[in-house]
Design a protein around this nucleic acid. Sequence first.
DNA 1: CCCAGATTAGATAGATCGCTCTAGTAGGAT
DNA 2: ATCCTACTAGAGCGATCTATCTAATCTGGG
Lengths: 192, 192
Amino acid sequence: MAGTKDRLLDSSAELFRRQGYAGTGIKQILAGAQAPFGSLYHFFPGGKEELGAETIRASGRLYIELFATIAAQAPDVPSAVRDFFDGAAQTLVETDYADACPIATVALEVSSTNEQLRQACAEVFDGWIDGATRYFCAAGIGARRARELALNMLCLLEGAFLFCRALRSTEPLRVAGASAVAATRAALAGDT
Amino acid sequence: MAGTKDRLLDSSAELFRRQGYAGTGIKQILAGAQAPFGSLYHFFPGGKEELGAETIRASGRLYIELFATIAAQAPDVPSAVRDFFDGAAQTLVETDYADACPIATVALEVSSTNEQLRQACAEVFDGWIDGATRYFCAAGIGARRARELALNMLCLLEGAFLFCRALRSTEPLRVAGASAVAATRAALAGDT
DNA sequence: CCCAGATTAGATAGATCGCTCTAGTAGGAT
DNA sequence: ATCCTACTAGAGCGATCTATCTAATCTGGG
């Protein structure tokens, strides 16, 4: 069995992405992790807020790794983008439209209410944007164009997640994915 | 002074978009509306949930009207899209990155936890997608293409809102807006 | 003027919140 | 064997949550 600290992070990550930060109680996190009350404050003396910040950063790292794994298996860059969107749609259906972006729900909740958590989200998002930009740069796209493509892809993905979850449909993700793939191809072809 | 019911809806709309549904307390809503406790349960016997559902629908209607107002003043369709994104960025800066999408925060929170509120969000989103699709159709874009364009524009907008708020930057909105305008032009030109 | 319905006003109930506290156990180092 | 640190365990605190309740106060029609 994984260590208690990891179980706490896993439990809170799953609950935060589904019902947000404010909507998730400490006791619910502990029940999910099968951990006693004392353990939480042993590993996270800062309480819920510290657990939240660490959960956000850990979830962000995991999501980068997911993209890297998919990209490594794809034959080319547009295929990687397509596979990433397809995989997201599949996960969405498999989890009854619960598991989309690991931190978007929390990010919107805390952006205007909790500076520490907002910064954790900002760090994760910056890492995603930089990572995607470098990935596109490595494929031969110019730096400026690569960053725009990265931002467009991520905006399309996050927006589609929002609509898919509320509408209980994968249509937004399919349309946005097709658009992201087309934009990637255009950038690779050097179109202005 | 506006009626108490409207003040309650306005107050909750402002608070929900900034800190979400679970993160907003009834007392906070009442303080914002300068209304007594009894009034809330007089106008909304269903309590917080009924107020939430009505707030979501009212906010959704207002946002459609905002787009219609901007579109009516724009000389052509791409300009309307551009002005909408520009206006969103301006509002974001003016409100210290607080006022973005009126219901996205709530939508992500409730999509997996509260079926009644999820449905209210779904209705609003459906209305936005249909409205934008009809707008693009009226400009001469084929029905299927118009719906894809509408979804892409809305996904870009919502995703950009998320990143802008967390990163405290308008860059995502500017990049996404440029992309939406380009997609609109391409659709109008009949490109495949 | 008076009555009835609409609305205001806020005390309070009962549950749940995040968190602190003390006490206990497990396991390795010496 | 003992001791020390790491961790487990959960009772309980004060605060806050949503919601209910009763009473007071408007306001328009007869």
